[in-house]
């Protein structure tokens, strides 16, 4: 019976498919309606101010206003690329971000996996709350603590170093230590907070999969590897792609508070570089140009990363 009606139904389907777009929108009008408020918001509050990026191509005079300020074309970008320091700063920014990707990105995942394995509810809740505390401590205070900690005269770390018979190390003026110190601080500050999104993703994992894994004889590690991790892979990939998009961002506060001229060679990144130029010159236009440069690079990287992820079936779009 079905065999004879099939060709008729599929013909009808094909006819419908011809008036695709309009029909689709009408059929799914709710979906498009839902998009309206959000995108209206983005249009007004994100895209309209984005027009202000023309500042990067002008010499902004606040009094004259954006429209009447004179055009200078690519002058700011020329300045940026001609500057000898640009390439050092670029290198520092990239290397620091790579360090962060290497250590600060996986850390919350590992911690989330560990937390997920805790069965004792009270321990779980209390430890989670404790783990979020560092996120709220401002960088100013944290940097002060780190400086105290690493002080060559009164710091705890150097007391241990001396007890071991060595001379005190002045950690914060040695370029070799800078990245380690900075990334460790960032891990410490962000790892607890970073677990939240992964824990949320883990709640979506079907518990019966654990049961079947156990039946198949998997131990705890194997359960994590074959059930939990795959369950949060999409989340990991999404966050990774987004992180790549901001690879030239390093966070101004923590670098500024912990760096000094002795560590400029590894520590000076875009944010601090622009800050120092801005101090001397206060040029909003220049800062806008640097920002635009970073945004463009980020855009390209995100597109590439998403394309790569797509080939693994894990794209954002």
């Amino acid at each position: 019976m079905q065999a004879s009606t099939e060709p008729i139904i599929s013909a009808q389907h094909q006819a419908r498919r011809k008036n695709t777009v309009l029909n689709y929108v009408l059929q799914n009008k709710w979906l498009y309606l839902f998009l309206v408020p959000g995108f209206l918001y983005l249009l007004v509050f994100k895209y309209i101010p984005m027009l202000g990026l023309v500042i990067a191509f002008k010499e902004l005079s606040l009094v004259k206003g954006i429209m009447a300020s004179p055009w200078v074309g690519l002058e700011h970008f020329q300045y940026l690329f001609e500057s000898q320091e640009f390439y050092k700063v670029l290198r520092n920014s990239l290397l620091l971000s790579l360090y962060q990707l290497l250590w600060a990105f996986p850390a919350p995942i590992v911690l989330a996996l560990m937390l997920n394995e805790v069965r004792h509810m009270l321990f779980k809740r209390v430890s989670q709350t404790i783990l979020y505390l560092p996120h709220f401590i401002s960088w100013v205070v944290l940097a002060g603590m780190i400086i105290n900690f690493l002080s060559p005269s009164t710091g705890l770390v150097n007391h241990i170093v001396e007890a071991l018979g060595m001379k005190p190390i002045h950690f914060l003026i040695e370029p070799d230590y800078f990245r380690t110190i900075l990334v460790s601080a960032e891990v410490w500050k962000g790892v607890g907070w970073g677990t939240i999104i992964y824990l949320a993703a883990m709640t979506g994992i079907d518990p019966t999969r654990y049961e079947s894994a156990k039946i198949d004889g998997a131990n705890r590690f194997q359960q994590i590897w074959y059930v939990t991790l795959p369950g949060i892979t999409t989340t990991i990939v999404v966050l990774l792609i987004l992180q790549v998009g901001v690879i030239l961002d390093n966070g101004f506060e923590q670098v500024f508070l912990l760096y000094n001229p002795m560590t400029y060679s590894v520590a000076d990144v875009f944010e601090t570089y622009t800050y120092r130029i801005g101090l001397i010159d206060g040029r909003l236009s220049f800062a806008a140009a640097v920002g635009l440069f970073k945004s463009l690079v980020g855009l390209v990287l995100i597109l590439i990363a998403n394309r790569i992820a797509r080939s693994f079936g894990n794209q954002i779009w």
């Binding site: 983005l42 027009l51 202000g52 990026l53 954006i66 945004s295 855009l299 954002i316």
Partner: peptide, 15 residues
């Protein structure tokens, strides 16, 4: 469109 808003920002004065 969404990704763009995450990366590009007009800055202090336009906002």
């Amino acid at each position: 469109i969404v990704i763009f808003t995450m990366l590009f920002n007009g800055g202090l004065i336009p906002n």
